[in-house]
Design a protein around this nucleic acid. Structure first.
Lengths: 200, 200
DNA sequence: CAGGAGCCTGAACGACGATTCAATCGCGCC
DNA sequence: GGCGCGATTGAATCGTCGTTCAGGCTCCTG
């Protein structure tokens, strides 16, 4: 995953992966069968890891607003120290062209996206049930729009667009969420690093 | 451009392009110097064409609302007959991974995006000046959000996500625009094919 | 009509990189 | 202690392109 994120899907050679793992290229083939297999496993592993992390993080929060804010935080490609969240987005950018033509990759991408939208929608539904969010909004509609917004912003961020920093992305997402879902801003603010570390 | 859209940047061989043009592979190199040059020119040509088309189309409309609706129309990847608008999005998806690592590609992508956001912001400013749009909105802020929304939705559409059809994308974009900019829906409706053909 | 300048091509050439293979190594088991 | 088996590797092998090259074709010009 690290090598793909660094070099790109197309430019990733078996020898690179082998070098990173400090083994021979032949051994990589021994375990993964082929380059295709290697790349496929890496990409699905990345997806699974991300979703697992989201699922785990969200289940620890009891307020829907907190869950939504965490969702936004997890979706922002930070290139800082904590972990390489930006790598996830790089891998997705790499995955997209492949998903256009490879049937399996396409299915996996669609499943991942559906899961992501469903997660957003679930958080919204929970918030509506708890009375934290306005009930006038259709959760699935909102999820579609919000997921698209996040994708588009994250794309700029991961491309290092100087006008769209991670901070600005987070701010925009929070504003939109607050406006559409009708909850006040700074509801205890954004979970800071200390809090995030505690939960890990 | 057609070959890249069909096969993908990585899988595009000089021989493919040559075959499509019904010439020899050597001739392609004769004109483009190298594969890199060929791909770079193809991608920039695609960008320029799209922007020219946008610029031309918008300049023919006198209502800001009509311009905004046309903007939305042009951004929707239709895979129908009219022209291959979807190809543009495929090419961008191909461009993104390259832009992550190739300095020139990155610069071009950022410029393209900035131009696109500026176009949106200009339409909004024009509409505010004409009194068609609410003046409370910051045009640049809106442009950032709206461009991201379009990117995210178009991504799903071009990936053939069964839940995000071109029609739904258009509908979502129009709703968001109408709501945020404060103009009534169905202001003369959406320019239909006849009208679009006339302007070509 | 001869000369030359582009235009165009088929046939090498070479590099690169995935895959294969035969040989070695380490180690638990009889 | 020898055996067998999985792990591991260096060294081929083999295909696939990008690129180069030497030459042919066409058409314009003097």
């Amino acid at each position: 995953m690290a090598v793909i994120a660094e070099k790109g899907l197309g430019a990733t050679r078996i020898a690179d992966v082998a070098a990173r793992a400090q083994v021979s290229a032949a051994l990589v083939l021994y375990y993964f069968g082929s380059k295709e297999g290697l790349l496929a496993e890496a990409l699905t592993l990345a997806d699974d890891r991300f979703y697992l992390r989201v699922f785990h993080d969200l289940s620890e929060l009891d307020s829907a607003i907190a869950r939504l804010l965490r969702l936004i935080q997890l979706a922002c490609p930070l290139k800082g120290a904590p972990d390489r969240t930006g790598d996830d987005w790089v891998l997705w950018v790499e995955l997209w062209p492949r998903a256009l033509r490879d049937r399996d990759a396409g299915r996996k991408r669609e499943a991942m996206d559906r899961r992501w939208r469903a997660t957003i929608a679930d958080v919204v539904k929970g918030g509506q049930a708890l009375g934290e969010f306005s009930s006038e909004l259709d959760p699935d509609d909102f999820a579609l729009r919000f997921a698209a917004l996040i994708d588009g912003l994250a794309l700029q961020v991961v491309m290092r667009d100087s006008e769209v920093t991670p901070d600005r992305m987070r701010a925009v997402c929070e504003e939109v969420a607050a406006r559409e879902l009708g909850f006040g801003r700074r509801y205890g603010g954004f979970p800071d690093e200390k809090e995030a570390a505690k939960s890990t």
